[in-house]
């Protein structure tokens, strides 16, 4: 499967090592340039669940890819460097893609260096994202740590777009420092709007930080929860997700109501290269979001 060539229309620096890039799909091209589909290539399709299936990304394809859902990811390609799996930090856009990338290696460094007008190849969307529908009519706790807030941002957007579909909603955001709080101005807006409860907490306060100091699990006991009707979505370092899940389970939240987004080495993104296996799951296809009920026994085994 080849990437579709998107064009960078904006590149916003979030912090020292993190960029948010907006990508526009290729402009519609004439008939005859749709590119010869590779034999046996999967068709673009929408499954019954409404989750977009991996599509055949063909050069010259008239349109962009099928819309990406919150929690799903695309493989972003920098020519001559390689691909990295990056989740959408915004969804529901008409064709455009928004990805927030943290520079942690060769490919992500190249992606962070993209400027408007540059080309980024995209394959996707891949995987199973957040199951937002199970949270409708329920209370929702969204916990994001560090760059882990990026795949949760579309969840918040979805909630705010249909706020009355959800009960109490709390967003708990952890970061190393105030300067490393992702989407800080947007967090401030959400905090001021009070449509949802927003709690930010940092490991290392700067002198001008007047917010909470500590880790996200410190914030959880401070939330009033009704465990029987609470859905949780967590993304961040695996250790953080483990402690968040255990903390909330102790307060009576059901393991199947807790969704975590897991990270493993991903290369092909279609369940064929084997790198992202976690027991019987290909996280590129069956994940990255799993319920804690499913994830816990797997994460409990060291080095599984």
């Amino acid at each position: 499967m080849r990437p579709v060539l998107y064009t960078v229309t904006s590149a916003k620096r979030e912090m020292a090592s993190t960029m948010t890039i907006t990508l526009e799909p290729p402009r519609q091209v004439g008939i005859g340039q749709t590119g010869a589909a590779e034999p046996g290539a999967a068709q673009v399709g929408i499954a019954q669940t409404g989750v977009a299936q991996p599509g055949a990304a063909e050069p010259g394809a008239a349109q962009g890819l099928v819309p990406i859902a919150p929690g799903q990811f695309n493989m972003l390609w920098s020519w001559g460097v390689g691909e990295a799996p990056i989740s959408a930090s915004q969804s529901g856009l008409d064709g455009a893609l928004v990805h927030t990338v943290r520079d942690v290696g060769g490919v992500t460094k190249a992606l962070c260096a993209k400027q408007p007008g540059d080309v980024v190849g995209v394959r996707g969307p891949f995987g199973r994202g957040w199951d937002i529908d199970t949270a409708r009519g329920q209370d929702l706790i969204v916990v994001g740590g560090g760059i882990g807030l990026a795949p949760l941002r579309p969840v918040v957007h979805t909630i705010l777009a249909s706020r009355s579909d959800f009960g109490r909603v709390a967003l708990v955001v952890g970061a190393r420092s105030a300067a490393e709080l992702l989407f800080r101005s947007e967090l401030d807006c959400w905090w001021r709007d009070r449509a949802i409860t927003v709690r930010t907490i940092v490991d290392r306060p700067s002198r001008d930080w007047h917010g909470s100091i500590g880790i996200v699990t410190n914030e959880l006991p401070r939330l009033e929860i009704d465990p029987g009707r609470t859905v949780v979505m967590v993304c961040g370092p695996e250790v953080m997700m483990r402690f968040v899940a255990l903390n909330l389970i102790e307060r009576g939240v059901a393991p199947e109501a807790i969704q975590v987004s897991l990270e493993r080495n991903m290369q092909c993104a279609v369940g064929q290269c084997g790198h992202c296996q976690l027991a019987g799951y290909f996280l590129c296809r069956d994940g990255p979001v799993l319920t804690w009920e499913v994830a816990r026994p797997l994460l409990e085994v060291r080095e599984l």
Binding site: P39, G40, R285
Partner: peptide, 22 residues
């Protein structure tokens, strides 16, 4: 080749690999 799994987690359909397919 995208054969569906007989059992398992109700995974989505697999993609076929054209290089192997050829």
């Amino acid at each position: 080749c995208g054969s569906p799994a007989k059992s398992g987690s109700g995974s989505p359909r697999r993609s076929a690999d054209p290089v192997y397919g050829a």
